[in-house]
Write a protein that binds this DNA or RNA. Structure first.
Lengths: 227, 227
DNA sequence: CGCTCATTTGAAAGGCCTCAAAGCTGGTGG
DNA sequence: CCACCAGCTTTGAGGCCTTTCAAATGAGCG
């Protein structure tokens, strides 16, 4: 994983990162500041309840942020896709993060990340944008969980997936059915039946379990509550 | 509602609000910058879908942020309590905000609010904190909606209410049962039965429908998944 | 005091979950 | 290259719990 960055105008170390002029330079700067880290499929990236204040940025692959309650019921609170941050808020650091598939991450000390933000407006903006986006996603997740039928829930989930990973009308589904179930608040069996339902309606079309083609307009209609 | 602020060292208008030294001064500054507004019970404060970029801060009373889908199903995305902001994010501005009971608010133009944040670090920090808090709340809401029984959902809701409005072990419940139902993703009937359930277990005790005493430790145990 | 509406209570129906088993897939070793 | 195995996914049947529908109760208000 060699550094492709041929630009070596040295950052005059930490006292002057404010020189960063654009997003691209900020990216390269970040890659120097964070610790590069890889995680195999299903590997635990960080566990809640520790006092460590670490946050992450997904570079490749997908991560899931999970809470398991006293009775063993699992809730996937969100998925983090390439370019997403997670662990920015206190509450999220109390959850567990795992790799869905093989993933590459940048790891930061949360305090140090805040310090970097203070003197790097690009980074600060990026993080602020990430938080706004997280908040919007969480609100959508709330709506999805509260008042939807299984079909609508799955459609909403697939629309979300399409936004993050979609290529035209082709959508990769990297996570297992159990993860989907724990994200939308259903059992894997019901998720499977909802998939069958959407397939019958020709809203989705399987290449295989982890890759499908979607009829996006129909998907959106169903996700928003239309039949 | 006269201005109790006897301090009239004039803010040298908008170019120098950076002089604000502490939270209290920031409060007074805000009250000058925002438009004071009151809303009667059930009055609509702002409706989604408009192009207006307005955000609000609740000064007194409680507001609810609501989404009604195509089929008429309603989801209360969150309640906003005194000192809370809402409408900070794009997504939230697309929803509808209503007063639960008589409420007093401060209204801002969202763009102008951002401008104020830029040159007033106290305000910026307050808003950033509000967003982190909103995000944490949304995550808790997701967990509450996803994998809980009616009893656990109601317990989780009451714990949230206790955090915001609780006085010792007394909790006011300003909103009607239908709002609670649409917040926790149940019907009013089921909410009513869950109340009866918690009352039987002596976890809650009614003064009347809108005021109750709670056994907080028991409430927390149930909310977190314990029986 | 009577009215209206929110809430509670009751009974029946439908849908999701549970339990169970078959099918498929991807990976491994011969 | 093929066969086998383990685990994920799908399919099926039955039960429980929430919803739905309906009516009674209670509270707030003119």
């Amino acid at each position: 994983m060699g550094c492709l960055c041929s630009d070596t105008r040295g950052w005059r170390e930490e006292n002057l990162p404010c020189d960063l002029r654009d997003e691209e330079e900020t990216q390269r700067f970040l890659q120097r500041q964070g610790d590069r880290r890889v995680a195999a499929a299903d590997a635990i990236i960080s566990t809640g309840g520790t006092t460590e204040r670490r946050c992450f940025r997904v570079m490749e692959g997908v991560a899931r942020v999970v809470l398991v309650d006293v009775e063993g019921r699992r809730q996937v609170v969100r998925f983090a896709f390439p370019r997403d941050y997670f662990g920015l808020s206190r509450g999220e650091r109390e959850l567990t993060a795992e790799a869905v598939s093989h993933a590459a991450l940048l790891e930061f000390d949360a305090g140090r990340r805040q310090g970097l933000s203070k003197c790097n407006p690009h980074l600060a903006r990026q993080v602020a944008t990430a938080m706004r986006s997280n908040l919007g996603q969480a609100m959508e997740h709330v709506v999805l969980l509260g008042r939807k039928t299984p079909r609508q829930k799955l459609a909403g989930f697939l629309r979300m997936l399409h936004r993050h990973l979609g290529l035209g009308d082709v959508v990769p589904v990297p996570m297992p059915r159990t993860d989907i179930a724990d994200y939308v608040g259903l059992t894997p069996e019901t998720v499977s039946r909802a998939f069958a339902d959407l397939r019958q309606r020709k809203v989705v079309n399987f290449f295989d379990r982890h890759l499908l083609r979607v009829d996006l307009p129909a998907l959106v209609t169903i996700a928003d509550g239309g039949t």
